[in-house]
Every structure is written in C-alpha cells, then in structure tokens.
C-alpha cells in the first residue's frame, strides 16, 4: 500500500510541471500588456521598458519560465502588479477561505449524497426512495449561483437569520461556521443530488450482483448487506467523480465567493484577471491546479483503500 501511495504521489510533480508550462504560455497569449496596465495610459516608453526589464518581460519565453520556476522553488511567485504585495502572501491569505468552503461543502455533500443514494436504492419501491430520487434530481438541476441567490434571498432577506456577506473571521470560530452555512450549502447542493443519483445507480447494479446473492444465501442481515457489502462496491464511481469534480467545485466556489463577498481564491483570481495582474493570475491558477491534483491524489489513494485490486495494477 505504502509503495502504491508513494508511486502515485511522485506523479504529482510532472503533472504540476506540465500545468505550469501550459499556464505560463497561456497567460502571455492574453491580450494586454502588464507593464502598461500597471503604469497606466500615460506611462512613458522608458518607464514601460524599465518595468519590462525588472519583470524579465523583455527576455525570451524559456528564460522567463526559468526565472519563474526558480522563484517557485524559493517560494516566490512574484509580485502583484497592482498592489505590490507578494503573490504568495496574497494566496496564503485567500487559500484557507476557499479550501475551507470547498472541502466542508464537498465533505458534507459526499456524506449526505452517498448515504441518500444508497438509501434510495435499498428502498427503491417505497415512496421515500422515490422522493429521494426526485429531490436529488432537483439538486442536480439547480446551478450553484442560483442556489446561492435563492438561499440568500430566503435566509438573509425573507427570514434574516443568517449573515449574507463576508467570511466572519472577526467573530471567532462560531462566526466562521455561521458564515459558512449558506455558501457551503449553495456549493454543495448540486453535489448532494449528483452523488445521490450516481450512488443510487451503481448501488442498484451492485445489489443484483452474484456476491450479494451469496450473502443473502448465507443469511447475512439485510442492513449489513446493503450498507457494508454493497455500499463499499457502489461507492467506487463516486470517488472518481469527486476527485475529478474538484475542478468544477473550485469553479463554483468563484461564483459563490463573489455572491457572498467572501475572500478567497476565486475572488482573487477573478479580480486579477480583470486587472490583468498576471503574476496573481498565474499563482492563483497554479494553486488551484495544485488543489485539484491533490484532490485526485487523495481520490486515488482512497480508491486503493476501498478496492484492493487497484494497487496491484
């Protein structure tokens, strides 16, 4: 198992490197010139040239990439063109908010979604099972930002019991938790529905499998058959989807962060894109990618725990 984990973890390095190179290329294809953006419309050509030299923008692309990579190794992602802050400190400030939002939301959604799906499959003939199936469809159909707006309308305007804006960092742990409820729900509601549907389908398949019939033939209690024997098999597709879905989740987090005015990676990147603040865009996307790769790594590792056949492939 350990060998598999190490092997799998080492793959993160070339993956990130590849992303970095593509990203580096893409940013420089974007229209607009960072030096003139930074210095404003009345900048003299001399000033622009000086800034280009300071930021190595006058050098060939591979050289710039080299500077950038060396910087990353040193923990330096460059400086924001706008604010002059270090990109790494901007990210360090934003990242915990996004990570907290994304992973609480996903974690709770996965737990609820998978259990609901399993339940709906086991009770496929009962009205409760049918209700769960319909409700999960509804969850899938609502986009994050619509859910966010509706929730805000309901719980901040109609029945004002929850805070609408910010991350609540000044009010301690309870403040953070209370400020997390609505954004996390908005972001997770689609996942609950999606994972419930996915788990229900694969659970229905698994419940017809020969090994489930074996367990029934030996009088293993129905609940153990469903929630141990079957669910461990049925949860495998959900793990893949969660791993791959972290990208989509981070995308959703951008909307949710903007709607709820939460500080975070999404808001940081979007603001930076509008401002043509390339170093921040690059750093932000790099960190988002790293999160994505990390999530996939975690998914693969949990795969091996769920399905012992994987690590031997």
């Amino acid at each position: 198992m350990l060998k598999y984990i190490i092997k799998r973890a080492l793959w993160v390095i070339p993956t990130l490197l590849g992303v970095l190179i593509i990203l580096f290329g893409l940013t420089y294809l974007m229209p607009g010139d960072p030096a003139s953006a930074m210095l404003g419309p009345r900048a003299t050509p001399e000033l622009v040239a000086e800034l280009n030299e300071r930021m190595h923008l006058d050098r060939a692309m591979p050289v710039r990439l080299g500077y950038y990579l060396v910087g990353i190794v040193k923990g330096d992602l460059g400086t924001s063109v706008w604010s002059g802050h270090k990109v790494s400190s901007l990210l360090a400030e934003a990242l915990p908010h996004t990570a907290l939002l994304a992973f609480t939301s996903l974690g709770i959604a996965a737990l609820i979604g998978i259990l609901l799906g399993a339940f709906a499959a086991v009770r496929r003939d009962s009205p409760i099972g049918g209700a769960v199936t319909i409700a999960s469809l509804l969850g899938v159909a609502i986009p994050d930002f619509v859910a966010a707006l509706l929730l805000m309308l309901l719980f901040c305007v109609q029945i004002p019991i929850l805070p609408a804006l910010g991350a609540g960092t000044d009010d301690g742990l309870i403040g953070i938790a209370v400020h997390l409820i609505l954004p996390a729900t908005a972001l997770g509601i689609g996942w609950v529905g999606y994972l419930a549907r996915l788990t229900r389908e694969s659970m229905l398949d698994v419940l017809d499998a020969d090994y489930i019939r074996t367990a029934r033939a030996f009088a293993v209690p129905g609940r153990a058959i469903a929630y141990q024997y079957a669910l461990k098999n049925a949860v495998i597709p959900s793990i893949t989807v969660i791993g791959l879905g972290v990208g989509k989740l981070l995308g959703g987090a951008v909307f949710v962060e903007i709607i709820f005015s939460r500080p975070g990676l999404g808001k940081l990147i979007v603001d930076a894109v509008y401002a043509r603040d390339f170093p921040v865009v690059q750093g932000g996307i790099l960190v988002a990618t790293a999160l994505f790769v990390l999530a996939n790594l975690l998914a693969d590792i949990s795969y091996a725990f769920v399905d012992p056949r994987i690590q031997y492939d």
């Binding site: 020969d210 090994y211 009088a219 461990k232 399905d307």
Partner: peptide, 21 residues
C-alpha cells in the same frame, strides 16, 4: 434455513465472492 440447514454454492465463483472484502 439460509446458511444453516440449506446452503447454496453458485455458478460463477469469480463473482460469487465480494471483490472488496
């Protein structure tokens, strides 16, 4: 009855045992 008095073995041993336990 099941698994006590009467037991059963099945056609396809490849699928008759749970792969993840």
């Amino acid at each position: 009855i099941r698994g006590q008095e009467i037991t059963m073995i099945f056609q396809n041993p490849q699928n008759a045992l749970n792969p993840v336990f």
